[in-house]
Amino acid sequence: MTALAPARIRSFYRAACLAELDALKPGNVHAFAAGHRMVVADFITSADVSAPALAQAGAGVGARVHGGVAATMAAAGQNTNLGILLLCAPLAVAAEGGASVSAVLGSLDSTDAEAVYAAIRLANPGGLGRAGKHDVAAAAPTSLMSAMAEAADRDRIARAFVNGFADVTEIGLPALHAARSQGLDPAWCTTAVHLAYLRWVPDSHIARKAGADVADSVRREAEAALAGLDLAAKPVERLLALDTTLKARGLNPGTSADFTVATLFWDALATAGARLA
């Protein structure tokens, strides 16, 4: 397997974060519209300051997540990228070490758990609530994977740690490749990825803040609203209509956006020679 230099990993990560912002992503923050008391500039800053930690040479998954969150909170003053960092850190470690993502996930230890728990407490993501086991307010468990398995049924990012990033390989990457095969512009390819996640799985961020039933209703609403959509026609007005109604209800499909970044990052690393699968 090809091992990638940290400088390239850093560049790919930042590019993925910025590309996601250029795409029209209904309900989320993007270049076409702000939302949820956040603007694109907040996420650009977050990408810039978190990239060095995410690509820190020799660092483990937990250290990269915590370093990225700490830099982001110091510069942006709010949680804009915890989910992105949780998804991208294992990919960065795998790419640097010439390993598969599954191998990296299998090597996580108590140090990773402590750092990730500290990062989550620092970011204080909305709607986190309390858990009966492995609650982030308590001491970190010995096994980060055990904690992720406990949360996997209610959080897609936690589930990614358990199922080897199946959502990326089974939803995100196929959507990206299909969009490219249709000749779509890069930004519209990114929109296609986001819409794939939005339409196919209930968004965890919405579920945490508004409940699982609301998250599934948003998925069904998006599926109905976007039926027959031709992204080649650049349907800005139709997507902005969905964007407006989601934001008016305070519904932010942030997990779908996080997975969109991870999909772009995975694709860039793989194109450069990393064999992540």
Rank of each mutant, 00 (worst) to 15 (best):
A147S: 13
A192V: 01
I171Y: 01
A7K: 13
E96D: 14
A147N: 07
E96L: 03
F265S: 03
P174D: 13
I206R: 01
A63N: 03
F43M: 04
G106Y: 06
A210W: 10
G132L: 03
A224V: 09
R208Q: 11
A76M: 15
G27S: 12
V218G: 02
E20R: 05
V162T: 01
D185Y: 10
K234M: 15
V101W: 03
A139F: 07
A92H: 03
L176A: 11
T263C: 12
M1N: 08
E150C: 10
D258F: 01
L122T: 15
R121Y: 04
A215Q: 09
Q56I: 04
A232G: 14
G132P: 05
A70R: 14
F165C: 00
A248I: 05
G83S: 04
A268D: 10
E150N: 10
G254H: 08
A268Y: 05
A196K: 02
L54Y: 00
A175K: 07
A41D: 15
V101L: 14
A210Y: 15
A51D: 02
L54P: 00
E223D: 13
R8K: 14
L87M: 09
S146I: 06
P90L: 04
L82C: 01
V261M: 08
D213H: 10
L251R: 00
S102P: 07
A248W: 07
A196M: 09
L269N: 05
L85F: 01
L198M: 12
S204H: 01
A233W: 03
T245M: 14
